[in-house]
Design a protein around this nucleic acid. Structure first.
Lengths: 334, 334
DNA sequence: ATGAAAGCGCTAACAA
DNA sequence: TTGTTAGCGCTTTCAT
């Protein structure tokens, strides 16, 4: 292992000068600096970040907590975060909590010591716990908000409104909301939006579920959905929507003829299946980058304070044969 | 921040004793030890791993390189790895290379300094580069093998053989292999297995592609596949298979009537679509755990040496209406 | 069984 | 502009 002293000796300068050449180049004479840098490169010198961190108090690491990487909603988010972090020369600790809210606080505590900042994606823990976590280390919440905490969230309410407007336009008068986990913050947001929109547009909204936010969760709701007096179902997310669609197909229920299904998230699979799924698209990669930017700017200038970024969503209308297709009086189809 | 000195002072002992109580408990008198441990816990003391690493030379971190988290093959693998790493009190740096083979060596070099060991999942870099990477830091390859390097791989050849046997049993006589990227190690393995099996069973094998290992890649191959004299196509992986199936459906091609499609990997989506996909299942989570175990055992006992673990695959036959269904003379269906 | 002292690799005062 | 010194938090000889 080549240390700063090796470089210093060979360059005929003191370790401090090497250190300066690397971290504050302007404080070193050009000639010296160039010599040092060239030598460091040639020797394959890499600063020991742990040692550096010991004295600067900065680790150069960020932590990322995510409920479930196998949930297609998250990889895009993680990729955005990861890419931006790397650009800024931060390494990323990733922890998959396995949707286990109970262990989140402990995992945060473990991570906190080794990172400069934390990104909590869709954390499931309770507000009080979340607050504690945030006080431990600079944190940005993603897909969840909390008073006086920095966050990047999606405009779920707007998305819900757009969805209802779309369904209303297709002639639907009675909608179902197939809810996900009660602890889901975004789920609550979506419900709020749906309620408001239905009220305003004079539509009925029936609450169904709740189910697990998975394909299986959606499948398991088939009977409940079928027995509800609705012509369209808004699922908690795309995975649930797809699971439900699948279960209905197995029962030979005509989708969207008898029942329309729409979702949230616009996971890649939504465009791969047939019929493809109308859904509210969350720009996850963008949100991820945004979150890192926010976190880093807070690290560089702690006086910035709390900031809550809300990323716009967009309605993704798919497939003229897709689930969201018309059930108007005259049988027209979008 | 509470340090080891704080604990020591309050416990009325020296920092060394606290250190010992934490790392080599047997070397501290029981009473003292219990007092120290209780106090440390009460004060919320957490050892600074960077400081510890500075002297022990161990960071307590592992690094994980993965080509693309959005590829459904990988999340399961990462989850398995992550879970096992955490169990053993290792934190995990995750780097998504974005399928960019060119940057892999540099990313490895960056990671190498900060980890005790590295897990390279499906690395795309060339063997020579891979060799260099391995010499930098203890490494376990996953889904790729290299002479004299530890690895955990899937029995792709066996999988390919099982697939061919299955298709032959359904009456197929001429198969197509829709190849993925030429740089893919597992792709080469699969091709090898297919060739051998077809030769042995007296089937024709037509090589098609290659295409990107994605849904789009599969879609783009529709015309080429249709013009080939085959009744079944074995896709590079499930994503390609699904993309192809989708494109054929849009052309109103009867799948599996006119053409059967099968894949590799058994990604979750394979069981979610209709018709569902017959495929070779790779137990990714298990492989991930296996890889971590292997890496850690090598870290703990460097004399162990290279070990190449080969995880068995299993044929996942799906859906009597699925792609892999019979094209026998009498029209029977499995 | 415990403490004192040294030092891991690095940076940040302080001198020069 | 550069070198010297001290010390980040921890572990590990070496004494006791």
């Amino acid at each position: 292992m080549v240390t700063i002293r090796d470089v210093a000796r060979q360059a005929g300068v003191s370790p401090s000068t090497v250190s300066r050449a690397l971290t504050v180049p302007d404080k070193v004479e050009q000639g010296t600096r160039e010599r040092i840098l060239a030598l460091a490169d040639q020797l394959g010198y890499r600063p020991n970040r742990a040692a550096r961190g010991l004295i600067t108090g900065r680790t150069g690491n960020l932590g990322l907590l995510v409920p479930d990487l196998a949930n297609p909603f998250f990889p895009g988010l993680v990729k955005g975060i990861q890419a931006r972090a790397l650009e800024s020369d931060y390494q990323l600790f990733v922890v998959d909590t396995g949707e286990n809210a109970a262990i989140e606080p402990e995992l945060v505590r473990q991570l906190a010591k080794q990172v400069d900042g934390l990104l909590l994606c869709s954390p499931r823990m309770r507000p009080a716990e979340l607050r504690e976590a945030i006080d431990l280390v600079p944190t940005v919440l993603v897909n969840r908000a909390l008073p006086k905490a920095s966050s990047v969230t999606f405009r779920n309410v707007d998305g819900a409104i757009a969805l209802v407007a779309h369904l209303a336009g297709l002639g639907h008068r009675s909608l179902g909301f197939l809810a996900g986990p009660a602890s889901s913050w975004s789920g609550a947001q979506r419900r709020r939006g749906l309620r408001a929109a239905c009220l305003q547009q004079g539509l009925e909204l029936h609450e169904l579920g709740s189910v697990a936010p998975t394909f299986d969760g959606g499948q398991s709701a088939a009977d409940e959905v079928l027995s509800a007096p609705v012509t369209a179902v808004i699922a908690y997310n795309d995975l649930v929507a797809i699971g439900l669609g699948q279960a209905l197909a197995e029962r030979s229920v005509d989708v969207p003829g008898r029942l329309s299904i729409v979702g949230f998230d616009d996971i890649p699979m939504a465009g791969m299946i047939r019929p493809s799924l109308t859904t509210v698209a969350n720009p996850v990669a963008e949100a991820g980058r945004e979150a890192v930017d926010l976190l880093l700017s807070q690290l560089n200038d702690p006086s910035i304070g709390v900031r809550q970024v809300r990323v716009p969503t967009s309605l993704q209308v798919r497939g003229s044969t897709g689930p969201a297709v018309a059930r108007t009086e005259d049988g027209m189809s979008s």
